[in-house]
């Protein structure tokens, strides 16, 4: 029997399906996820931002679902690892559990997609004012890409990062410290520091504009350089790398196919990151309409 035929039964749908359903239920019942979902609902009921519409609400799913999802998924992964160790001879290998946990990220992603639907609808019903952003001739698809990247992709990427952390560094404090460091880095790299605006697109969360102000008008709306469309592709690559990285923890999963997928994802991610920084808007735009 070859390695391929030994491998095939482990990841058959009949084996994976009950695992995936169980992990989805576990994720959906976690208090942190439920609190986060409630925060998203409350925020949506409060309506979009009065000046820049739903573009200024992107932090809500990112924080409530994505950031909390880092801790939730790390906890789920850690517990599944502890159960495996205590079981002695587990019925399924670690890679099957990893795949099931990765699929469970569809639960928070569904909330992210629902938020994206709300954000897109409200963006069209209540577009930004003249003093908001985007302004002028924003490229086609710019706003939807920002909403999808900052909002929906965060709800997928956060949990998958938690999966990676839970597999390789299963201590409880790691996910907590990483979430704090991630927020600190995102705040610094959100466009506050002018020289860093061109390179901020390597961050998994960043702003593409907002009331960052200019001299004499500290609430003036700006639009930052880069291509949010390529940034969404970059984020998708990062999500894929998180799953591959988590699978890599199981020595039995390190097949030739996984190596090929990992290499392809690395190339895609690097190229997309470079294109997100080098294409699109080539400099910071300042809204000509003052705020006061």
């Amino acid at each position: 029997m070859t390695a391929a035929t030994l491998e095939a039964p482990v990841l058959r749908p009949a084996v994976l399906r009950p695992l995936v359903v169980r992990e989805m239920r576990r994720y959906a019942s976690r208090p942190l996820f439920l609190v986060g979902a409630l925060l998203v609902v409350v925020s949506c009921l409060g309506g979009p931002d009065a000046v820049s519409s739903s573009l200024m609400n992107v932090v809500v799913p990112a924080a409530a679902i994505g950031l909390l999802g880092v801790v939730v998924m790390a906890s789920l992964t850690r517990r599944s690892g502890q159960l495996r160790e205590s079981a002695g001879v587990p019925p399924v290998p670690e890679r099957a559990q990893t795949v099931a946990l990765a699929w469970s990220a569809a639960v928070p992603f569904a909330v992210g997609l629902a938020w994206f639907a709300w954000a897109s609808l409200t963006y069209h019903q209540q577009p930004p004012t003249a003093a908001g952003y985007p302004f002028g001739d924003a490229p086609t698809g710019w706003a939807p890409a920002v909403l999808f990247g900052c909002g929906a992709m965060s709800t997928l990427g956060g949990p998958l990062l938690g999966l990676l952390l839970g597999r390789w560094w299963p201590r409880r404090s790691v996910a907590i410290v990483v979430s704090v460091v991630l927020v600190a880095a995102a705040i610094v790299m959100q466009g506050l520091v002018a020289p860093l605006r061109g390179v901020r697109t390597f961050m998994p969360f960043t702003y593409w504009g907002g009331p960052f102000g200019v001299e004499g008008d500290d609430m003036r709306a700006l639009m930052f350089p880069g291509s949010p469309q390529w940034w969404v592709v970059y984020l998708a690559g990062l999500c894929g790398l998180c799953v591959v990285g988590a699978l890599w923890h199981d020595p039995g999963a390190r097949s030739r196919r996984l190596r090929l997928v990992a290499l392809s994802l690395v190339v895609l991610t690097v190229v997309a990151c470079l294109l997100s920084a080098l294409t699109g808007l080539d400099h910071t735009l300042v809204n000509p309409v003052p705020t006061r």
Partner: peptide
């Protein structure tokens, strides 16, 4: 408690609901 308090406080500080 710590694994809930830290991210929850962070999320609430970022979102500032109501």
């Amino acid at each position: 408690v710590a694994s809930i308090a830290v991210p929850a406080a962070l999320a609430l500080a970022l979102i500032r609901p109501a």
